[in-house]
């Protein structure tokens, strides 16, 4: 194993871990809102959250790249206020990965919340507990399988991201070169031995994660 190989795997793991962590924090309130809100435009928000599932990664990647450009409002604001350029940086692919992974985190959480009987939420309210306490002490502990599915799916999806990372981050070793891009790069260079090593590790990690999800789903809730 070369240092470059380890560095690429480390970067891939770091990207997947940080994406999953950020999405868990963002996904919980979004899933709660989508599960219980009666907001009139909820369907629009739901559609926006689910867009990355149907949109080609290159399309999303293109729009994110345009948004990062200092010639546009968001990119210009980032450069003027924080002196930061997100295009072709690790932070840039992290933000892109968070946007792209949103439905993989939100949808299982939302499904878990919707499937809980209304009465347990209402029982908590009649016992004098606020919505926040009810969420953390009653709702979340009762959707554990959904939480594990959401985390595992998001992590597995982030590990294998290709299109959007290539569009937004390019192929910079140590900065934006993740395993899926390295495989493509090695195949282009006819270096099948290295490509095989990357591919095998991604294959094993994905298999372990999916086995974990299915074994949890087979167990009863309590």
């Amino acid at each position: 194993m070369t240092p470059e190989f380890i560095e690429t795997l480390w970067l891939t793991g770091k990207l997947a871990f940080l994406t999953t962590l950020c999405l868990f924090i963002i996904g919980l309130p979004v899933a709660y809102f989508l599960a219980f809100s009666r907001f009139k435009l909820k369907a629009v928000i739901e559609a926006l959250v689910s867009m990355p599932m149907v949109l080609p990664p290159t399309v999303l990647g293109y729009y994110i790249l345009v948004a990062y450009s200092p010639q546009h409002a968001f990119g210009g604001w980032l450069e003027n206020v924080f002196n930061v350029r997100l295009a072709f940086s690790f932070e840039g692919i992290l933000v892109a990965s968070i946007i792209f992974g949103l439905p993989f985190m939100v949808q299982p959480l939302q499904t878990g919340l919707v499937q809980l009987p209304c009465s347990i939420r209402e029982a908590s309210y009649t016992l004098g507990k606020s919505k926040t306490i009810t969420f953390f002490r009653v709702l979340l502990p009762n959707i554990k399988p959904s939480i594990i599915t959401a985390i595992a799916l998001t992590f597995a999806h982030s590990i294998g991201e290709f299109g959007i990372v290539l569009m937004v981050g390019g192929n910079m070793p140590g900065e934006t070169r993740v395993a899926s891009i390295a495989i493509y790069d090695e195949v282009q260079a006819l270096n099948y031995h290295m490509a095989n090593q990357y591919a095998f590790i991604l294959f094993v990690v994905s298999l372990v994660i999916l086995t974990l999800i299915y074994s949890i789903k087979q167990k009863p809730l309590m």
Partner: peptide, 20 residues
Amino acid sequence: AKPQNRNIGYMFQDYALFPN
């Protein structure tokens, strides 16, 4: 007044016990 602010005890038809 929200249910939290009415001093009531409510027993639901399905009991609504917290499974966790």
